[in-house]
């Protein structure tokens, strides 16, 4: 403590850090209060729930792309995989969340471990194209097995989810459940970021060869990131299918993969918190802008280009910049 008092720069940083934590806690609490703000507006609460799922999904891609630099053009594969597996499990076996969701996540991790063992040996464009191919295969599988997946009509009639036997029907309960999963996933991701594993991932992103020189098993850790990313993506998909009571083949499309990538870029690649914001902002913006104009994709495309050129750090980068400026002025 005496060190802190003696060093004004450290003191300022420590107080800035305290402020940041307080601010983050405030935002987290505000997020938890959304159901109270949206009483009488059930649609808004539903949209907020969708946004939370999008945030989990965005976070799952950032676990891969942000941590290791591997760019996936087919992340929707895991989102759709999770939705269909969970939907089918709920329909055919049990709607109990504590069985359906873990089983789905484990299944996704297993498939990711097998496919990833081949994929993560590739770098750059090759990896990106192969992920796209993988998602297209999964997309095609929905139509091949249309008698169980429902084909083009999607998987319908997923029963109401239960938790410990209690059906979850209240929109508020659903929201809090999803929000809890998001906070837990984000906290875990941030914790890993600061751990030796997180540091090792970042060193791979920075320079895989140098990472090998200091003894890091680059392919092994890339595979771990790929599997964890797929598992969390499938978790988001499972929650979506149970929340909507349905799954559609669109969830596996290359368009969906592009959207997830936009969440991440919009929020700020590699920042974990940024993609969460990106997923939320995008979901609301998509809804409101698309209700104003059918040409909304054109605007979003333009916005995407603008972000990449003007603010490559995304929302998180812009906020961080503003924060540092404020701190600078406070001296």
């Amino acid at each position: 403590m005496s060190d802190l008092a003696a060093n004004p720069a450290l003191e300022r940083r420590a107080s800035g850090r305290g402020l940041l934590i307080a601010g983050a806690a405030l935002v987290a609490v505000a997020g938890a209060l959304v159901p109270f703000w949206t009483t009488g507006a059930p649609f808004l609460l539903m949209l907020a729930s969708q946004a939370v799922i999008a945030a989990i999904l965005a976070l799952s891609l950032d676990l891969l792309t942000g941590n290791t630099g591997l760019l996936s053009f087919g992340h929707a594969a895991w989102f759709g995989f999770g939705a269909y597996v969970a939907g089918l499990l709920a329909k055919l076996v049990t709607p109990e969340m504590l069985i359906v969701v873990p089983t789905t996540v484990i299944a996704a991790c297993l498939v990711a471990a097998v496919t990833g063992a081949v994929l993560v040996r590739q770098i750059g464009k090759t990896f990106a194209i192969l992920t796209l191919a993988l998602s297209q295969i999964m997309f095609a599988l929905v139509f091949v097995a249309s008698d169980i997946t429902g084909g083009e009509d999607g998987l319908q009639g997923v029963p109401v989810m239960t938790v410990l036997g209690q059906p979850v029907v209240q929109a508020q309960t659903w929201y809090w459940l999803l929000y809890g999963v998001l906070l837990a996933a984000l906290a875990a991701s941030l914790h890993i970021r600061r751990s030796p594993l997180g540091r090792a991932w970042l060193s791979i992103r920075e320079n895989a060869e140098r990472a090998r020189f200091i003894g890091i098993d680059v392919n092994g850790l890339k595979l771990l990131a790929f599997v964890m990313s797929a598992g969390l993506g499938a978790l988001a998909g499972a929650l979506l299918a149970l929340f909507n009571g349905a799954a559609s083949p669109d969830l596996l499309s290359w368009f969906e993969s592009g959207k997830i990538l936009m969440f991440v870029v919009l929020g700020g690649v590699g920042t974990l918190v940024g993609p969460v914001l990106g997923g939320i902002v995008f979901t609301f913006a998509e809804h409101y802008v698309s209700s104003l104009t059918s040409a909304w994709l054109i605007y979003f495309g333009g916005l995407f280009i603008l972000i990449v050129i003007v603010a490559p750090g995304g929302i998180f980068g812009v906020l961080g910049h503003a924060w540092r400026r404020m701190q600078g002025q406070g001296r």
């Binding site: 030796p196 540091r199 970042l202 992103r205 920075e206 140098r210 990472a211 200091i214 890091i216």
Partner: peptide, 15 residues
Amino acid sequence: KVFANLSVRENLEVA
């Protein structure tokens, strides 16, 4: 080649 976007401390810690 350093890990350019990591801090000096992080470069040392990862090793």
